[in-house]
């Protein structure tokens, strides 16, 4: 992967997309072979956002975001200011002191995403962060997430089951086969961002990827 690149991973459910991320995060050991992140063993190298609600319920949005730095030891004095500015820049200023149970699902995912970006890591592993949201919130969050990513210029590996989402966000889309997962195809997406869903080139890519997914299913 190249630095600053956004790679999405799509594949039939149960094929091991999450497992792949967890191996990259150093949470699982591969049965064979090895994974290196920036030339090192993976644990501690990447910021991993697990699927589902992973915010600490007893911390405010701000507290949760700061946790990403506290995780590395002492909190720098300017971190709080930085985190508040980040919340403000991405439309969450008024929720800084809210607890997760006071936030909507979309807002919680925004906070969890900002927390992942706020960690001092250059590689982010996002496991279906928009998976549990309704279609409208989801489209809104895709644009929002793109904005955050463009600000930080971090490398992202993004697991999703929504092919259109992958096309809209990624530099490259990786298609996995059903279990045992192999790389079925790799689609570069070199369209300028932001990409419109209705753009025929986006739809074309989508069709191509869906085709690859369908054909990978036939043994």
């Amino acid at each position: 992967m190249e630095r600053g690149e956004w790679v999405s991973v799509v594949g039939p459910s149960g094929c091991g997309k999450t497992t792949l991320l967890r191996i990259c995060a150093g949470l699982l050991k591969p049965h064979s072979g090895s994974v290196q992140v920036f030339g090192k063993p993976p644990r501690g190298q990447a910021a991993y956002m697990p699927q589902g609600d992973s915010l600490l319920p007893w911390r405010t949005a701000l507290g949760n975001i700061l946790a990403a730095r506290e995780a590395d030891g002492r909190l720098e004095p300017e971190a709080k200011k930085e985190a508040l500015a980040l919340l403000a820049d991405f439309g969450l200023a008024e929720f800084a002191q809210s607890f997760p149970n006071e936030l909507s699902g979309g807002m919680r995912q925004r906070v969890a995403l900002l927390r992942t970006f706020f960690a001092r890591r250059d590689l982010l592993l996002l496991d279906e962060p928009l998976g549990a949201l309704d279609a409208l919130t989801r489209a809104e969050l895709q644009d929002w997430l793109l904005g955050v990513w463009q600000r930080f210029q971090k490398t992202v590996i993004f697991v999703t089951h929504d092919v259109e989402e992958a096309v809209i966000l990624s530099n490259r889309v990786l298609v996995l086969t059903p279990r045992p997962a192999r790389l079925a195809a790799l689609f570069p997406v070199d369209l300028p961002r932001p990409r419109e869903r209705s753009d025929p080139r986006v739809q074309g890519k989508r069709e191509a990827i869906l085709g690859a997914l369908a054909s990978s299913r036939v043994p």
Binding site: R22, A25, G26, L27, R43, G44, Q45, A46, A47, Y48, M49, P50, Q51, G52, D53, S54, L56, W58, A67, A68, E70, A71, D72, G73, R115, T116, A119, R121, L125
Partner: peptide, 27 residues
């Protein structure tokens, strides 16, 4: 609590004693 709460920190390489203090005890 489920592993999601802890895995974010484990992936960051946070030592277990700190995870204990930041996540497990308050939880």
């Amino acid at each position: 609590f489920g592993p999601e709460l802890v895995e974010f920190f484990q992936a960051l390489g946070t030592p277990e004693h700190r995870i204990f203090r930041m996540v497990r005890v308050p939880g």
